[in-house]
């Protein structure tokens, strides 16, 4: 399992290639990458704050649960913090499992939990000022399906 919390940009394509090349015994790899939206040109960027120490622990616990529930061969989570621009990759998850059903489910589980259980906070930056992104009820509700 690999978890990286970093300010530096990363290349999602390169990460997928490296992840897929390293897994042994998996029949399916599912990946997701999240990008910074510009919301129709309204946003100039995003600032992501996190809680060093707790972030890595919280993600580790979420990944451990996914690995156990879906018998994953491997999993990767990368999440950036700091200042990002529209189009930048914010984060990605990759899951490797025996079959695609497990890999898809585990990737969705990881995304749902990373959204509301990993200590990151997004601030949208625009020409007219900046604003903290409010958590959505739907994000909390999404956890109930697991």
């Amino acid at each position: 399992m690999r978890i990286r919390v970093q300010a530096e940009p990363f290349d999602p394509g390169g990460e997928v290639a490296a992840f897929s090349a390293a897994v042994r015994g998996a029949g399916a790899v599912v990946t997701f990458s999240g990008l910074v939206r510009d919301e129709g040109g309204r946003l100039t960027g995003m600032e992501i704050e996190h809680y060093p120490g707790m972030t890595e622990k919280a993600i580790g616990a979420i990944v451990d649960e996914a690995v156990a529930r879906w018998a994953l061969v491997d999993a990767l989570v990368i999440h950036r913090h700091g200042r990002l621009r529209p189009g930048d990759a914010i984060m990605m998850v990759a899951t490797a499992a025996g079959h695609r059903g497990e890999a898809f489910a585990a990737a969705e589980f990881l995304m749902d939990y990373l959204k509301s259980r990993a200590p990151f906070w997004k601030k949208e930056l625009g020409a007219e000022g900046s604003e903290w992104v409010a958590a959505k009820d739907a994000d909390e509700a999404a956890l109930k399906r697991w």
Binding site: I90, M111, K115, S116, P119, W121, A134
Partner: peptide, 23 residues
Amino acid sequence: LSGFDAPLAGVREVAFFPPMTGG
């Protein structure tokens, strides 16, 4: 993560923040 009714005995670090918005 904890709750507001939790005891503080033995706790070294308390953090307050809004609901998280990662992903």
